[in-house]
Amino acid sequence: NQESVVAAQLIPINTALTLVMMTTRVVSPTGIPAEDIPRLISMQVNQVVPMGTTLMPDMVKGYA
């Protein structure tokens, strides 16, 4: 089963992602794949992401 990127903390809107903000977990439905974490660093979220929420492609500016 593929791991997806999950918020390790509350991420406010327009925050640039850092490694410490993200963790990985096997979730359903699947979100952004864990191997894309290096690509996500410094990208901004376009909404508030509560802790434990799976990051979906449409939540990250410039990802999709």
Rank of each mutant, 00 (worst) to 15 (best):
Ala8Leu: 11
Pro57Gln: 11
Thr24Trp: 13
Thr30Pro: 14
Pro38Ala: 04
Ala8Trp: 07
Glu35Cys: 15
Ala16Val: 10
Pro50Ser: 09
Leu19Pro: 10
Thr24Arg: 13
Thr54Ala: 08
Thr23Met: 15
Pro33Leu: 06
Gln2Ala: 15
Tyr63Lys: 02
Thr23Ser: 15
Thr15Tyr: 05
Gln2Leu: 15
Glu35Gly: 07
Gly62Met: 11
Val45Ala: 06
Glu35Asn: 14
Gln2Gly: 15
Lys61Glu: 04
Val27Ile: 06
Val27Asn: 05
Pro12Val: 03
Pro33Ile: 12
Leu40Val: 09
Pro33Asn: 06
Glu3Val: 06
Lys61Asn: 08
Asn46Arg: 13
Gly52Trp: 13
Tyr63Pro: 03
Glu3Thr: 05
Ile37Ala: 07
Thr23Leu: 13
Arg25Trp: 10
Thr23Asn: 09
Val5Phe: 01
Val49Ser: 01
Thr23His: 13
Asn14Trp: 10
Val27Trp: 03
Thr23Ala: 12
Gly52His: 13
Ser4Asn: 02
Glu3Asp: 11
Ile41Cys: 05
Val27Leu: 08
Thr54Val: 12
Met22Gln: 01
Met51Phe: 10
Met56Gln: 12
Thr53Gly: 12
Asp36Ala: 12
Arg25Cys: 06
Arg39Tyr: 11
Ala64Gln: 12
Thr15His: 05
Ile13Cys: 14
Ile11Val: 09
Asn14Met: 08
Gln9Phe: 06
Ala64Lys: 13
Gly31Gln: 04
Leu40Met: 06
Met56Ser: 07
Gln9Tyr: 08
Thr53His: 09
Thr15Cys: 04
Val26Ala: 11
Leu19Cys: 15
Ile13Ser: 05
Gly62Ser: 11
Asn1Thr: 15
Pro57Leu: 04
Thr30Ser: 14
Ser42Asn: 05
Pro33Asp: 06
Gly31Arg: 03
Pro33Gln: 08
Leu55Pro: 01
Thr23Pro: 00
Asn46Tyr: 11
Arg25Glu: 07
Gln2Phe: 12
Pro38Arg: 09
Gln44Ala: 10
Thr30Asp: 11
Pro57Tyr: 11
Ser42Thr: 05
Thr24Glu: 11
Asn14Ser: 10
Thr24Ala: 13
Pro12Glu: 11
Val6Tyr: 03
Val27Gly: 05
Ala7Trp: 02
Met21Trp: 05
Gly62Pro: 05
Asn1Cys: 13
Leu40Thr: 02
Ala34Cys: 08
Ala16Lys: 11
Val48Asn: 15
Glu3Asn: 06
Gly62Gln: 08
Lys61Gln: 07
Glu3Ser: 05
Leu10Gln: 09
Leu10Thr: 11
Asn14Gln: 05
Pro33Cys: 14
Ala34Arg: 07
Arg25Gly: 15
Val27Arg: 09
Leu17Val: 03
Met22Ile: 13
